[in-house]
């Protein structure tokens, strides 16, 4: 934006392109200035150290500044209990359980827990990896009762089964729905959407397939990876590829 202010676009230049700067006089040969060393990262807080000691691996913080931990699936019940009961940690409330699907990663699913300590007023994020071959994760219903519906939803939409959950059944989709819609290989338009309705004896007034839309458009799954074979990795960024234009991605 500075160049737009300093050099108002003249008629000879295409708009938005700053005119070429005149060559500056070269400075005398000298060693390039060394950049100032970045400030050392602050030491982790004692409670983060305490959580790490339980077996949770601290992850680098993201844009929201929350403390993030990664926990092995088998260690999760004991770590969760300590997170809730330990006085220095005291995460009394489980805010949210979110499942995320990374089809190109191993493990494929990531169950993300957000915990809130009311006593110390902090929020922490804990991630548990769940592989595709054995999509189970230990349930924390006996620790936080609110996990009941969150885990049911994760099972419903992603297919992650929570062992130890008293009543793991679908919650948002109909009970006999055969797919897990939030998985990346499930198309946004769905597959055979009226299946539950028709099974319940419902009457469709018109044909299920629109006559004025091409036959493939209703049923062909849409690839939501936007043609990126690398999937969710750093490869695209490090190789300097420009971001793909998602456009108005209306399916």
């Amino acid at each position: 934006m500075a160049d737009a202010a300093a050099n108002p676009p003249s008629s000879s230049n295409p708009p938005g392109v700053a005119p070429a700067a005149p060559p500056a006089a070269l400075p005398p040969a000298a060693s390039p200035p060394t950049p100032a060393a970045p400030p050392p990262p602050p030491p982790p807080e004692p409670w983060v150290v305490a959580v790490a000691a339980l077996g949770a691996e601290p992850q680098p913080a993201t844009q929201d500044g929350l403390a993030v931990f990664r926990v092995e699936r088998d260690a999760w019940p004991s770590v969760a209990r300590a997170l809730r009961d330990d006085a220095a940690l005291s995460f009394e409330m489980l805010l949210d359980v979110a499942g995320v699907d990374f089809p190109k990663r191993r493990p494929r699913f990531e169950v993300v827990y957000h915990l809130w300590s009311l006593r110390h007023n902090r929020v922490a994020r804990v991630k548990v990896g769940v592989p595709e071959e054995d999509p189970t994760c230990p349930s924390v219903v006996d620790l936080w009762g609110t996990a009941d519906w969150h885990e049911r939803e994760c099972f419903d939409l992603l297919g992650v089964k929570f062992t130890g959950h008293p009543d793991l059944r679908r919650i948002l989709m109909p009970d006999d729905y055969p797919w897990h819609p939030l998985r990346k290989d499930f198309p946004v338009e769905g597959i055979d959407n009226s299946i539950s309705y028709v099974r319940a004896g419902g009457v469709l007034m018109t044909r299920e397939l629109d006559v004025d839309r091409p036959a493939g458009q209703d049923r062909t799954p849409v690839d939501l990876s936007h043609g990126d074979p690398a999937g969710f990795t750093d490869k695209a960024e490090t190789e300097g590829e420009p971001p793909k234009s998602g456009g108005n991605g209306h399916p």
């Binding site: 979110a98 995320v100 609110t146 969150h150």
Partner: peptide, 19 residues
């Protein structure tokens, strides 16, 4: 890093309160 979100999870208070 794309023009669409990779995952959005909405923590809905009504979903939790309904329990």
């Amino acid at each position: 890093g794309r023009s669409h979100p990779y995952r959005v999870k909405i923590r809905a208070p009504s979903f939790v309160n309904l329990q």
